[in-house]
Design a protein around this nucleic acid. Structure first.
Lengths: 118, 118
DNA sequence: TCATATACCGAAAAATTTTTCGGTATACTG
DNA sequence: CAGTATACCGAAAAATTTTTCGGTATATGA
């Protein structure tokens, strides 16, 4: 199937396990967006990450729910409404996200000089 | 070209930048292998990560040299010999690798129960 | 001599991820 | 009524990554 990973996560080594949970293109950004703990509607996630194709965000949000990093609450309303919220497990990844964010800020110029400017 | 990325790293946001440097399947493991600072020959890297296809390791090592995370020293000997060593820039990523390693160890059982055991 | 080891690379295949397009359905606003 | 917004999903295309296979070349040991 096109939208199911053969091996959901990598259980061979702890490092690969962690990586496999967040290495998809936008998952780390999604965690960052949800970090405050406030719920976000799908359309808000889409607006926060306008460079991401909405379909990909939907797929990755779904995987993150399956992995237990976020929850999804569906309201039986019309027009439809749902909300994503970070879980405790998801929150426990935030120190990693924080470090990556910090590292990226500190070393941005090196790579901008090397590969950019766009 | 098959072995060149269109966009070498992602300069759109600091988080994506950091991720783009290490998200390839084995790069984080390579950094972990080289963490001590001792040089490693390609064949040693291959033996340390036997689950990885040697060709992929070669490609990812090359990209990491290009990105400045590791260095490569070629000895003009026969049979050929070369050595990879982590740079200061590469070392500055180790705290992130450490956190991911630690996180993976702490939460391994959750995912083994959910998706494993293999 | 033959197998093994070293390092490296191109090409093609396979697998996976991302993107794009179109479709479902309902409600609100102009 | 038409346009917009909501959420979601399937299918196919495109892009990217990973794997596999074969090849270059030389030295060592059985």
């Amino acid at each position: 199937m096109a939208y199911e990973k053969k091996i959901p996560v990598d259980l061979d080594c702890p490092l690969r396990l962690t990586m496999s949970l967040i290495e998809s293109k936008w998952k780390s950004c999604i965690l960052d967006e949800l970090r405050s703990g406030s719920p976000m509607r799908p359309c808000e996630v889409h607006k926060s990450l306008p460079e991401a194709a909405p379909r990909v965000l939907d797929i990755q949000l779904k995987e993150m729910v399956e992995d237990g990093l976020i929850t999804k609450k569906i309201f039986p309303e019309l027009p439809p409404r749902s909300e994503y919220m970070i879980t405790d497990l998801g929150k426990s990844l935030l120190p990693i996200i924080d470090l990556m964010l910090q590292w990226g800020e500190e070393h941005f110029e090196i790579f901008e000089k090397k590969y950019g400017p766009k």
